[in-house]
């Protein structure tokens, strides 16, 4: 907990303050904002972007980007739906869907790490290719490729435990696990190392290419899980699921404090970013503000956050901050031995 507080960036503190102000202001105009129903609504919306944002955090900390998550979300939903429609038992259908996410993640990771194709390009390619494949499957016969799922599956999206919606529980569990992975395991440490200085990481014996591939696989799997939860919620797999989601996901991760330069970021930060964007969208919606205002607000936040990131990483500013905080740079006490 102490580490969490120490690691807070200025812009995250500002974000929390803004969030509190936002919630207070909206509730003043529209008390139903804090009603149980709306909070549950927000919680479910959180999971739709939140899961992919957690995966994207790892990708961006490692210095990459994954534009394909929206399409992989639809792929996962589609694969699961189609498998169930042809009679495959639910657990295997879910595994099949997860495997499809692994495959796309592997393609992304291998292209980026081994073939040295820029992440932006290859994940843009998979974004189009995967979405196209899903649309081709339905081939104009409507946007729903599967529906009427078994009750067990529907529970994942519509059920709740102790009042908490299932999608939220799943997402929170994932967040806890991924936070621990990032901060306390070798996998997380190597992610940070590679994102800061891939060559230094390589010289230390870290298998950089293998690790990057695993990270993109993680991102793909997160997208599939998100797709499964949405499908379970609406009880239908649609080819339009997740369209454009990748942009909101990236915005949430950056707003939450993950650096565009790689090597810096956190899961709690992403949690904050996703929470903020979700609440902001819901607030604008409940106040009947034009949906275009949401895009404007998201864009502005993203630009401000990116500017803050650039400023925070400028050498001159770091030196200034060090001097202000009284960091003593050159006193190294060394004593002679024997």
């Amino acid at each position: 907990m102490a580490d969490l507080i120490r690691g807070l960036q200025l812009r995250q503190v500002i974000l929390v303050a803004l969030l509190v102000l936002l919630v207070a202001a909206v509730t003043a105009f529209q008390p139903t904002f804090l009603s149980l129903a709306n909070v549950a609504n927000i919680a479910v919306q959180f999971s739709q972007i939140g899961l992919m944002a957690a995966g994207m955090t790892f990708v961006m900390i490692a210095g990459g980007i994954d534009l394909s998550v929206g399409s992989v979300l639809a792929l996962g939903a589609g694969v699961c739906g189609v498998l169930m429609t042809v009679g495959v038992p639910l657990p295997f259908a879910i595994v099949g869907a997860l495997l499809s996410g692994v495959v796309i993640g592997w393609i992304n990771g291998t292209g980026i790490a081994y073939l040295k194709i820029p992440a932006l390009i290859i994940t843009l390619g998979t974004l189009y290719a995967v979405r196209g494949a899903v649309e081709l499957y339905s081939n104009g016969s409507g946007s729903t490729i599967a529906q009427d799922f078994p009750a067990a599956f529907r529970f994942l999206g519509q059920g709740s435990v102790f009042g908490l919606p299932m999608p939220t529980i799943v997402t929170l569990l994932v967040y806890v696990v991924l936070h621990l992975v990032l901060t306390k395991t070798r996998f997380g440490r190597y992610t940070i190392a590679i994102g800061t200085d891939a060559e230094a990481a390589r010289r230390s014996g870290i298998l950089v290419e293998r690790h990057l591939t695993k990270i993109y696989i993680l991102s793909g799997v997160m997208a599939v899980i998100a797709g499964l939860l949405i499908t379970a919620q609406v009880n239908a797999a649609s080819i339009d699921l997740g369209r454009g989601a990748e942009l909101t996901v990236i915005a949430a991760v950056v707003v939450g404090g993950t650096s565009l330069y790689g090597g810096q970021g956190s899961i709690p930060g992403t949690f904050l970013g996703v929470t903020f964007l979700t609440i902001m969208a819901d607030a604008l919606d409940i106040l009947n503000v034009s949906p275009f205002a949401i895009d404007l607000a998201t864009g502005s936040l993203l630009l401000l956050s990116a500017a803050a990131d650039v400023l925070a990483n400028r050498r001159g500013l770091i030196a200034l901050r060090n001097r202000l905080l009284g960091a003593r740079e050159t006193e190294i006490a060394v004593h002679k031995l024997t």
Partner: peptide, 22 residues
């Protein structure tokens, strides 16, 4: 001369980088 240290990690993280005890 470049030292090949990871700036965002701490001293012990760098000393053990690649060979962390788990």
């Amino acid at each position: 001369q470049g030292l090949a240290l990871i700036e965002t990690l701490d001293v012990k993280g760098n000393i053990f980088l690649g060979r962390e005890p788990v």
